[in-house]
Nucleic acid binder design. Structure first.
Lengths: 223, 223
DNA sequence: GGAATCCAAATGGTATACCGTTTTAATCTG
DNA sequence: CAGATTAAAACGGTATACCATTTGGATTCC
């Protein structure tokens, strides 16, 4: 055993991860407005790190869809139009039913996590929490599909979804607090065809579920 | 007019783009073997630039699927298994028929480019060129779909496809030189339902086309 | 001979510094 | 006052340097 004392495994937090988490949180919470400039120097100063990790974080955020770069290399908080949201929905309507079909055959090991998620949804105390759990439920299905790339594609859209939903909720505070139970029920309904390993029914139910979900949303508003 | 002489618009080549293009070419051509370590310092020395632009290029290549990072941050040339390729095909079978359906309504402005592509495919002199034109044809459809995110998702898979196909061709040199005409014909067949704006037929023909294409490939081999 | 140990070289993460370009705003011009 | 000009500040791209960790192999030990 080395004299050097205990090796703490690692637990070394890269500063770029710190910057990433910080910026992501502030963008999703709306603390940084859509369209705002994310200057490397300013962010670095705020976070007490150098520009290099900030730079990496910005690239990562671009991949998540939360940030866009101008042609001169400046980073801005992503702005979304209703059109953007429709595009995302179109993709969900293709990818998620596919995931549901694939997942039906091998859902067993994931059932516990799914049920836990539904229970947590019922106990959720805020719209933001319901949204997070909702997306998590869907991501669990994507995971269960067994197609790693499919999951990756979904994750690359998740940031944009959260961005849009967060802004939507902030514009309609207090409304639709019943979403909690509705979401839980809808997800429970999805679980049935999964449990019986019915692939084609899982697929069509998922498509229907996403279409319904779309109807619930207040669709107006821009940015 | 400024005294300072002519402003050459820009034409300033970022060194990171140079590094990106160089590495991409060498990886796709097989000059750098699958699984090989891509050390930042070595690449920087070779290219005569500092590590910073190399670093950026590596991140970009990771996004393209040509490079993977170990948990300690080292970059390696991507290795692909038959399973990976099957996942890609599953996704193509979902995304491209969808793109075809959407594109059918608004294919008009893209017909010329598509026909030019087919003509070029007929004149292609190497398997690599056919592959490039083949992928370009499909990317044109994705573009015509009008869903920008759909195109982005496709592009994030394109690198992996090229990687796999390149390796496959190098293992079966000289075979299937008739692919040239076959590909052109298949693509011409696809063009018909597009021209008549038949969305559902475009969709199913595209699905069929991809399935056929899969059959043509020599499926064995790993890495 | 095989496994644990240890050390030197290699590697990645990050801070700092420099430079050309882009922005921005103040100034000038009509 | 509106538009063009220009100069200063801000910003991004990149080179260099330093440090902690990782790696790979030589060495040691059993």
């Amino acid at each position: 055993m080395p004299v050097k004392a205990i090796k703490t495994d690692s637990a070394v937090k890269p500063r770029s991860d710190l910057a990433l988490a910080n910026l992501r949180r502030r963008i999703l919470s709306g603390a940084i407005a859509p369209g705002a400039l994310l200057a490397e120097s300013a962010m670095a100063r705020e976070l007490g790190v150098s520009r290099v990790p900030v730079r990496e974080a910005l690239f990562a955020l671009e991949r998540e869809g939360l940030v866009v770069f101008s042609d001169t290399g400046r980073a801005f908080v992503r702005q979304l139009s209703p059109r953007d949201f429709e595009e995302l929905l179109q993709l969900r309507l293709t990818l998620e039913p596919m995931a549901a079909r694939l997942a039906a055959a091998q859902i067993q090991p994931h059932l516990h996590a799914l049920r836990t998620n539904i229970a947590a949804t019922r106990r959720a105390r805020s719209l933001a929490e319901v949204t997070r759990l909702d997306l998590e439920f869907h991501e669990l299905i994507l995971t269960a599909s067994g197609n790693g790339r499919l999951l990756k594609l979904w994750r690359s859209m998740r940031g944009e979804l959260e961005l849009w939903l967060g802004r939507l909720h902030r514009q309609h505070q207090g409304q639709r607090l019943d979403t909690c139970e509705q979401t839980a029920c809808a997800h429970e309904g999805l679980l049935k065809p999964f449990s019986s390993h019915n692939a084609s029914l899982s697929e069509s139910k998922m498509r229907e579920h996403i279409l319904n979900w779309r109807e619930w949303l207040p669709l107006q508003s821009g940015q």
